[in-house]
Write a protein that binds this DNA or RNA. Structure first.
Lengths: 165, 165
DNA sequence: TCTAACTATGACGTTAACGTTATACTTATG
DNA sequence: CATAAGTATAACGTTAACGTCATAGTTAGA
């Protein structure tokens, strides 16, 4: 009476194996270098939903999910964004993708109102993009000057070491 | 019976003005864009001690202190270091400065043992420096690739906008 | 089919980096 | 010298980003 597999088709035997349906949470987590708790937390915040769930309610991640997870971790570690900022950024990316999709689908055959809305979204996107780019460039500049400082320090250390011989 | 000024010399009137002795904590804080609490907290952690205290026990900061504070904030904001890492880094810098000072003072007239110790410290410094430089470069590379992605996004946005006219 | 190993869902705990508040003292200025 | 405005210390509060634990259900392999 209980469902046995993910797809739940009882008379279909064409599935490769009983074990099927994506990456378990602990495997996904260890692959990405985080904890299972982190993945559940990200899901709770609406940052990352696994593409699949088993009939029993367990999360199953796909490779695509892992790619998205890496994007999130990159935004966190490299850009120092907090999870709210990441969410906002990701939702904007999603919105842009949607926009592109519908644009390609409808080609030029849209109403004036729809096109005005598309323009508005595009302008918003460009604005966010520019803001991020500015912040990024500022940070890059400061990091680069810090790198120069480090290089100078290293040089002086080596000079001193050379003098001690 | 209570002391009145910083120096506490009662019969000495040669001091420039009653108002004297450095930057008050709230001024230092607002100049740096942080709160007074943050400065007290940093002092508590051993990150930044004001150069002066009034006889009444109030903190007075110098311009040098503010420069040091900005270094700390830079390490925090740009490199994403936590306060413990910053402390370690700063203490290492201090140690290097001391080393350079004593080295310049004693010139070449030191014992073999002292020179060996100096060498050891220099090597430690170089190691820390290299570690930081590596991390920094890795981060810079990832940030740069992210910047490229942003630029690409912006380009596509502009292309779409152009098509809409 | 049995079972060891994994998972879900709360719910409470933890840590860093401060914020806030209360109380008492200090400083600058009219 | 009075007094408003700033400060010190102590102590408790807050938030983000998870960690940990208990309890109960699920899955995969022998």
């Amino acid at each position: 009476m209980a469902a046995r597999t993910v797809t739940g088709a009882d008379h279909d035997v064409s599935q490769p194996a009983p074990s099927e349906g994506g990456i378990r949470i602990s495997d996904a987590a260890s692959t990405a270098g985080v904890s299972a708790r982190t993945l559940r937390y990200y899901e709770e915040l609406g940052l990352l939903r696994p593409s699949l769930y088993t009939s029993g309610g367990e999360r199953r991640y796909t490779e695509e999910d892992l790619i998205q997870l890496n994007r999130i971790l990159e935004l966190r570690e490299v850009l120092g964004m907090n999870l709210d900022e990441i969410k906002e950024f990701l939702s904007f990316e999603t919105r842009l993708d949607e926009l592109r999709t519908t644009y390609r689908a409808t080609k030029g055959s849209t109403t004036k109102k729809a096109r005005a809305e598309q323009k508005e979204t595009l302008r918003e996107a460009l604005e966010l993009n520019e803001t991020l780019a500015e912040q990024l460039n500022a940070k890059l500049a400061r990091m680069d000057s810090f790198r120069a400082k480090l290089a100078g320090d290293a040089r002086r250390c080596r000079d001193l070491l050379a003098e001690l011989d």
